[in-house]
């Protein structure tokens, strides 16, 4: 197995992880600040992808499509927060799970009603298609490289926003003491809507970016949502750093597992059963990783200690 192939798979894993990070960051912020578990986050991912595909189809511009994804998801997020989510903050997790499960049903069927059951396609713009030569003689997809770069920039921006800006101070204060921040004269409900819309916009952006390398269809958000949950369990709730490291761990484990496990098993068994057994085990690899982290650190790598 060549160095180039290994490097390419590692980059694929990192790219997958970075996209998971965009989902997990929003989820973990929303949980950290509002104490809310939001199953409908995957629907916002889908909304972003559909908005991007529709706008790209109408205008042909990829940048406009990304802008549309951000806006549509942010607006959908803000609306959902104002109409439904706001009523759930004081309730227990069971009610939050059910209400957001209901939102998934409404979003998915609503999208199917608007766009039909057939998948849409969003194509990579010409200036981002084709390969790029990376140091070390590796040829890699330019678009995926751009995804990694964009994701890292967003991660850095989020980190700076949380640690350096006034909003960030309010977010951290909101995580620690909700009553106190309200007593200091900050409009907490406006802050909540803002954070929810920000998380939604990140999910929508991820949906649009991923939509260009896979098909845009109803139900595309939930598998990603569940992987983002695995990321949060591994990284620790409420921690952006944990979300970033957890995402990349999950991305690498999933990608490298599905490529290299069957090949490694080929050393000890015949080719066809190695492929079958290898891919079955690889499909469970990230959950096994999650189990190991749970045994070792039940609150995640960067979660608060009890």
């Amino acid at each position: 197995m060549s160095f180039a192939l290994i490097a390419e798979q590692i980059l694929n894993g990192v790219q997958f992880g970075i996209m998971l990070f965009l989902m997990a960051a929003g989820l973990t912020l929303i949980f950290g600040v509002m104490g809310l578990i939001n199953l409908a986050h995957g629907s916002l991912f889908m909304v972003g992808a559909f908005a991007a595909a529709a706008v790209a189809g109408a205008t042909g511009s990829f940048l406009l499509a990304l802008l549309a994804a951000l806006t549509a998801a942010a607006i959908a997020g803000a609306l959902v927060e104002l109409v439904v989510i706001r009523r759930l903050y004081g309730k227990d997790h069971l009610d939050q799970v059910l209400a957001t499960f209901a939102l998934i049903l409404i979003f998915s069927e609503g999208t199917r009603w608007l766009f039909g059951s057939f998948p849409l396609y969003l194509s990579i713009p010409s200036y981002l298609s084709g390969p790029i030569s990376l140091p070390g003689g590796i040829e890699y997809s330019l678009y995926r490289t751009a995804l990694i770069a964009a994701g890292l920039v967003i991660a850095l921006g989020l980190g700076l926003m949380i640690t350096r800006t006034r909003i960030g101070v309010q977010v951290r204060a909101g995580e620690n003491d909700r009553e106190m921040i309200a007593a200091l004269g900050i409009d907490i409900s406006k802050l909540y809507t803002l954070i929810f819309a920000l998380g939604a916009a990140l999910a929508g952006l991820a949906g649009a970016l991923v939509g260009a390398i896979q098909s845009v269809q109803v139900g595309m958000g939930e598998p990603v949502l569940i992987l983002a949950f695995v990321v949060i369990v591994i990284g620790g709730i409420g921690s952006i750093k944990g979300a970033l490291i957890g995402s990349i761990l999950v991305g690498l484990t999933d990608t490298l597992g599905s490529v290299f496990l069957p090949q490694a098993l080929r050393l000890v068994m015949d080719a066809s059963s190695a492929t079958a057994v290898g891919s079955s085990i690889a499909s469970m690899a990230i959950y096994i990783l999650m189990g190991v982290v749970l045994i070792w650190r039940p609150t995640g790598l960067f979660g608060a200690r009890f």
């Binding site: 949980f31 578990i37 997790h93 799970v97 598998p223 569940i226 949950f229 695995v230 949060i232 369990v233 709730i237 079958a276 891919s279 079955s280 690889a282 499909s283 469970m284 959950y287 999650m290 749970l294 045994i295 039940p298 609150t299």
Partner: peptide, 26 residues
């Protein structure tokens, strides 16, 4: 080993594990 919202996410994730296993086991 955990409780609350972690428990929800973990049971959901393990459920998904069985789903993918059943798909990839020919």
């Amino acid at each position: 080993r955990t409780s609350g919202v972690y428990f929800i996410m973990i049971t959901l994730a393990f459920g998904q594990m069985f789903f993918y296993f059943s798909i990839s086991w020919p």
